[in-house]
Amino acid sequence: MGWVENRAEFLRKHQNADGGWGYFPGRESRVEPTCYALNALGPNSAQEGRGIEFLLSRQESSGGLTPSSSVPGATWVTQLAFPLLKRAQAPSKQLDKAADWILSCEGAEGTVMQRLLYAMGKSKVEQDPRLRGWPWRPENNSWVEPTAHGLVSLHWMNGHAPEAGIRYRRDIATRMLLDRRCEDAGWNYGNRKVLGEVLPSYPETTGIALLGLSGSGANLEASLKRARLHLDSAKGDYGRALLSLALRVHGESVDYAPTHEEVHPSKNIILAGLELLAGKAKKGSLLP
């Protein structure tokens, strides 16, 4: 069995009875690994129906999805799940509510004091507080990863939210990601400079940010070069898979090969899903 079939079999085998996947086999189902597993196994897989049922079971009355059945409160996983729900033609009413939640959730930065300090050049971190993306949890600041997933979700929202609202969030969030880009043209979690010290980008977050910016029309030449450099030097499979996936989604030629023929010893469900995606993604994948 080759590595692709290894990963696919691993994912198929470890779908929980409730239709979701945990971060590791046998663990509580969570929305995040479920989304990666469903994406990796592709539309119309035998696992999709139950997986989508699990995702829908996590939707609160607010429209947002909670991370798992044991953790209440809608979070960033809503924007991660939205494209899958749309692709699977989930009920329109539920999609409308999820879209509404995503559009109304934004970073908490931008207080008068933060804007003032930023304008005076006295902010401890170099982030334009006017540019709000998405937070990990409501009422927190916006960061790179949830914002990237938010941008992807906007591509799937036509017909479920006002076009002006989608356009507004896309514009601001795109600018936010570009504002948070590190000096080396990649991304870390979302701080390019702290206390005057320049911070480097990471492989995995560079990949995630590039996924979020696919189809944005932004000039990403330097960032794609940085992604290539990270891919050449990164040792971790998680970062390498994300970079390969992002480069392929941007139309670049990459042959992803995992460092382990067998499933990674961490038995991480997300990683297995990412590796499958990295091996088969094409330009524009993950977008409608």
Partner: peptide, 13 residues
């Protein structure tokens, strides 16, 4: 992090 994010913004708040 899977609940509170990367970074764990809750702690800063």
């Amino acid at each position: 992090g899977a609940i509170y994010g990367w970074p764990k913004n809750l702690l800063h708040y």
